[in-house]
Deep mutational scan, measured.
Amino acid sequence: DKPLMPYMRYSRKVWDQVKASNPDLKLWEIGKIIGGMWRDLTDEEKQEYLNEYEAEKIEYNESMKAY
């Protein structure tokens, strides 16, 4: 599988927590909350997800070359 983009990594990490805090919200409403949370992160906080993505992207590209 292709590596997940940084925002999607963050979304997967916080989804269950946001859903548990807001059990009556629809999926798109939860997505909207998470989008706002992502925008509110500092560049340093986002960098963690970007670093994970870049590392996985290198691994993915290497595995595709071998294939």
Rank of each mutant, 00 (worst) to 15 (best):
N61D: 11
M37V: 00
E29Y: 00
W15S: 04
K13A: 11
A55V: 10
I30Q: 00
P23Y: 00
P3W: 06
V18Y: 00
A66F: 09
I34E: 01
K2H: 06
W38H: 04
L27K: 15
E44C: 05
I33E: 04
I58D: 11
K19E: 06
K2Y: 08
E59K: 13
M37D: 02
K46V: 04
E48I: 08
G31H: 15
G31A: 14
M5C: 10
A20N: 10
M5F: 07
R39T: 09
Y67H: 15
S21G: 08
P3L: 04
D16M: 06
D1Q: 10
W15N: 01
I30E: 01
P6K: 02
M5R: 09
Y53M: 07
R39S: 09
Y49L: 04
S21Q: 14
P23I: 02
I34D: 00
S11Y: 13
K19Y: 07
E29L: 00
E59H: 08
N51H: 11
T42R: 09
E59D: 09
A20L: 07
D40K: 10
G31V: 11
M64E: 15
M64T: 12
S21Y: 05
R9V: 04
E44A: 09
K26G: 07
K65N: 09
N22Q: 05
D24R: 07
D40W: 01
G35S: 14
K57L: 12
G36F: 05
Y49Q: 05
P6S: 06
V18Q: 00
D24K: 13
V14I: 11
E48R: 08
K32Y: 02
Y60T: 14
D1R: 07
N51Q: 12
D43A: 14
G36W: 03
I34N: 00
P3K: 02
E44P: 07
L27W: 12
E54F: 02
D43N: 15
K57V: 13
Y10F: 14
R12E: 13
K32M: 08
N51I: 12
W15E: 09
E45R: 05
M37F: 00
P23L: 01
S21I: 04
E29A: 02
M37P: 00
M64I: 08
Y53V: 08
E45L: 03
L25W: 00
Y10I: 02
E59M: 10
K57P: 07
Y67W: 11
K57S: 09
S11G: 05
R39Q: 14
A55E: 13
L41G: 02
K26E: 15
Y53L: 05
A55D: 10
G35D: 15
K19R: 12
I34S: 02
D40N: 14
E59C: 08
W38G: 03
M64K: 09
P6M: 03
Y67P: 15
A20H: 08
T42A: 12
Q17A: 13
E54G: 05
Y53G: 10
Q17N: 13
K65F: 04
N51S: 12
D16Y: 08
K57C: 14
P23A: 02
S63Y: 08
L25R: 06
R39P: 03
E56F: 00
S21V: 07
G35E: 15
E56H: 03
E59S: 12
D24S: 12
K32W: 03
Y67A: 15
G31D: 15
P23R: 03
D16P: 07
Y53F: 05
K19F: 05
V14S: 00
N51E: 11
E48M: 12
S63T: 10
Y60Q: 10
Y53S: 10
D43V: 07
V18S: 00
E62C: 07
K13G: 01
G31S: 14
G35P: 01
N51W: 08
S11A: 10
Q17E: 14
G31M: 07
E44G: 10
P23V: 01
D40Y: 01
L27V: 13
V14E: 03
N51L: 10
V14R: 03
